[in-house]
Design a binder for these strands. Structure first.
Lengths: 257, 257
DNA sequence: CCATCTTTGTGCACGCGTTCACAAAGACAT
DNA sequence: ATGTCTTTGTGAACGCGTGCACAAAGATGG
């Protein structure tokens, strides 16, 4: 999971647990694939396998949406696709703006997954005047000055931030002030937003670090035994107060070799 | 969170809860920022605010690593940076390969966050022969045929998949067969991997869909009242079989103003 | 109409994660 | 040395999420 929910502490929105909501898109994808293959019905077991989850969990998830299955048969694929789409709000059009058209922003603009499911890239915004007018993914980039007008004119409520970390908070505030209430943040920063605004974070670096942790643990299991001696902790405020790199001499260079 | 852990069901690796591990990179980032400003010590309250979490949670998280704080003072910034880096395995060099050099793959290759913390892009791999040799982010792209050799020669254990969905599973299998044991998957597919291999998934489309859900809910709260009539569920397999989109016409247009 | 078989929907128990609230520990002043 | 003040570290309670296991519901065949 490259994502982290911020704010809205597990608000069981309308009775649907947050964890379930997070899985609905997964089910939807699997169902769409089945639909394209014209499969009429699917059992919880099969669908669960396709989505990579436990079948009991899937059934419980669906039970929050209502009783849409038929015992002894399974779930009607088309019907379920519609129900989940509706529940997720994908039966309507969501205009989205992407702010920060660097490598990542451009990649996002070109990403087919956006347009495929109710999301429409309404505008691309960048602070660099040299970018203005230049088309990316067939859409001309507009300057940050136009941000408020773009949000307002297009009724945008979802914004994607792909700027450098330094600019993210400021962009965020302008987006929110202009009326955006949901933000997908790719910048490696913690955004602070007022209540009522949802922020989801995608952080590539964090994902890699989590993988590294597990990777190290795997490697450590084989080499078990050493690494048991922890470096001495700073004893007292005296040691802590001096601004040296490490309070003790044994701190190895933290930078990668 | 745009991320979802796959496999390894909450393995409390070496006593450190998975949830804590996922937050360590967040703390590390905040601490690094303090370090650059030469701040010597920080209290749990301050650091928690910077990382966007609860201070009690932060203290409990740190307690899993050991008692690195000083009561009445706080935590030594440099020391904590080192401890967390070590815990996450960032004191060593992690060669990484990126497979699939499209828009996203190129963006990842250029992403500074990779190199900054122990991760080194060892190779870029793409199936398109036309890409071979072409430098991206200063690194020449190599053809998929070389995959096994690259993994082996560089001792790569972490792979990033940025291919189209259709190619992901196959690439994944080749990576695993060649010795990769951690995978960061950007392709919108569920990867199936043998035990012992960690997969983390970053799915832009899913994140947006989750935001859309909450966005719809917010919009619905204002219009509260209608939408109470659930569409008739398919009665028996007969009704379910017809492939119509919506069984009812009452779906409200919740378009943002 | 009855029996059997399949598959859903869910009650229940368990475990992880979060949060509160406070005792213990240390800094610092007198 | 003693007292006060700050901040950590953690015991305990609570709530959410997960998975088991089974009863209920419907399909299907005779």
């Amino acid at each position: 999971m490259a994502t982290g929910r911020t704010h809205r502490p597990a608000t069981r929105s309308r009775g649907i647990p947050e964890a379930t909501v997070a899985r609905l898109p997964l089910y939807l994808r699997a169902l769409t694939a089945l639909s394209e293959r014209s499969v009429p019905t699917v059992s919880s077991e099969e669908l669960a396998a396709a989505a990579g989850v436990n079948s009991a969990k899937l059934r419980k998830d669906f039970s929050y949406l209502g009783s849409y299955g038929t015992r002894g048969v399974g779930y009607d694929v088309e019907y379920l696709v519609y129900q989940i789409s509706r529940e997720l709000g994908l039966t309507q059009d969501w205009p989205v703006v992407i702010v920060g058209i660097g490598n990542l922003g451009a990649a996002l603009a070109n990403y087919g997954g956006f347009a495929s499911r109710g999301f429409r890239v309404a505008a691309l915004i960048d602070a660099d005047p040299a970018m203005a007018g230049k088309p990316v993914a067939g859409i001309p980039v507009q300057h940050t000055d136009e941000l408020e007008k773009i949000i307002s004119d297009n009724g945008v409520s979802i914004g994607v931030i792909a700027t450098p970390a330094g600019a993210a908070q400021q962009v965020c505030e302008r987006l929110v002030a202009a009326g955006v209430t949901s933000i997908l943040n790719f910048a490696p920063t913690v955004l602070s937003v007022p209540d009522g605004v949802d922020v989801r974070k995608v952080d590539l670096s964090i994902e890699l670090q989590i993988l590294a942790f597990h990777e190290q643990r795997k490697a450590g299991e084989e080499t078990e035994g050493e690494a048991a001696v922890p470096p001495a902790a700073p004893t007292g405020a005296a040691a802590a107060a001096d601004g040296r790199k490490g309070p003790d001499g044994d701190v190895p260079a933290v930078m990668p070799a």
